[in-house]
Amino acid sequence: MTTPMTAVTMVVIASIVAMNDGDLERALPAILMVFLLARLLHILLGIAELGKYIRSIPYPVVSGFVTAMG
């Protein structure tokens, strides 16, 4: 799922930089905070073992999503 995360990352970074009038130095703390919170959520979801529910999503849906991102 690297391709979808690349697309999401690009949009998040571009949005935060745009909100800071294109100044990457001012946007950097917000960018880091977004990704640190995302990683924390990822860890918490792993501890709660919620990843097992991906089996409930039909394979064609997941495959179509990843293919569309490519």
Rank of each mutant, 00 (worst) to 15 (best):
Thr2Gly: 05
Thr2Ala: 02
Thr2Arg: 01
Thr3His: 08
Met5Pro: 05
Met5Asp: 14
Met5Leu: 15
Thr6Ala: 10
Ala7Tyr: 08
Val8Glu: 14
Val8Pro: 00
Val8Asn: 08
Thr9Arg: 10
Thr9Asp: 02
Thr9Ile: 02
Val12Asn: 08
Val12Asp: 07
Val12Glu: 09
Ala14Gln: 11
Ala14Asp: 14
Ala14Tyr: 01
Ser15Arg: 05
Ser15Glu: 11
Ser15Lys: 03
Ile16Pro: 02
Ile16Arg: 03
Val17His: 00
Ala18Gln: 06
Ala18Cys: 01
Ala18Pro: 00
Met19Trp: 02
Met19Lys: 10
Met19His: 07
Asn20Asp: 07
Asn20Lys: 04
Asp21Ser: 11
Asp21Tyr: 06
Gly22Ala: 04
Gly22Cys: 04
Gly22Leu: 01
Asp23Leu: 08
Asp23Asn: 15
Asp23Ala: 10
Asp23Val: 13
Leu24Phe: 12
Glu25Ala: 15
Glu25Lys: 11
Arg26Gln: 14
Arg26Ile: 12
Ala27Val: 10
Ala27Met: 06
Leu28Trp: 07
Leu28Ile: 07
Pro29Gly: 10
Ala30Tyr: 09
Ala30Glu: 11
Ile31His: 07
Ile31Cys: 07
Leu32Gly: 13
Leu32Phe: 09
Leu32Asn: 05
Met33Tyr: 01
Met33Cys: 04
Met33Trp: 01
Val34Thr: 14
Val34Tyr: 10
Val34Cys: 09
Val34Gly: 01
Phe35Trp: 06
Leu36Asn: 05
Leu37Gln: 07
Leu37Cys: 13
Leu37His: 04
Ala38Thr: 12
Ala38Met: 11
Arg39Gln: 08
Arg39Thr: 12
Leu40Trp: 09
Leu40Ser: 11
Leu41His: 02
Leu41Cys: 09
His42Gly: 12
His42Ser: 14
His42Thr: 15
Ile43Lys: 01
Ile43Phe: 12
Ile43Met: 09
Leu44Pro: 00
Leu45Asp: 00
Leu45Ala: 11
Gly46Asn: 15
Gly46Glu: 15
Ile47Tyr: 14
Ile47Val: 15
Ile47Ala: 13
Ala48Lys: 07
Ala48Trp: 03
Glu49His: 09
Glu49Thr: 05
Glu49Gly: 03
Glu49Tyr: 01
Leu50Lys: 08
Leu50Gln: 13
Leu50Ser: 05
Leu50Met: 13
Lys52Ile: 15
Lys52Phe: 10
Tyr53Gln: 03
Tyr53Phe: 11
Tyr53Leu: 03
Tyr53Lys: 03
Ile54Thr: 15
Ile54Glu: 11
Arg55Thr: 14
Arg55His: 12
Arg55Phe: 10
Ile57Cys: 02
Pro58Gln: 01
Pro58Val: 00
Tyr59Val: 02
Tyr59Asn: 05
Tyr59His: 04
Tyr59Phe: 02
Tyr59Trp: 00
Val61Pro: 00
Val61Gln: 05
Val61Leu: 08
Val61Arg: 01
Val61Cys: 01
Val62Thr: 15
Val62Ser: 13
Ser63Ala: 10
Gly64Leu: 04
Val66Cys: 07
Val66Gly: 00
Val66Lys: 04
Thr67Lys: 12
Thr67Pro: 00
Thr67Trp: 08
Ala68Tyr: 12
Ala68Asn: 08
Met69Asp: 06
Met69Ser: 09
Met69His: 09
Gly70Phe: 06
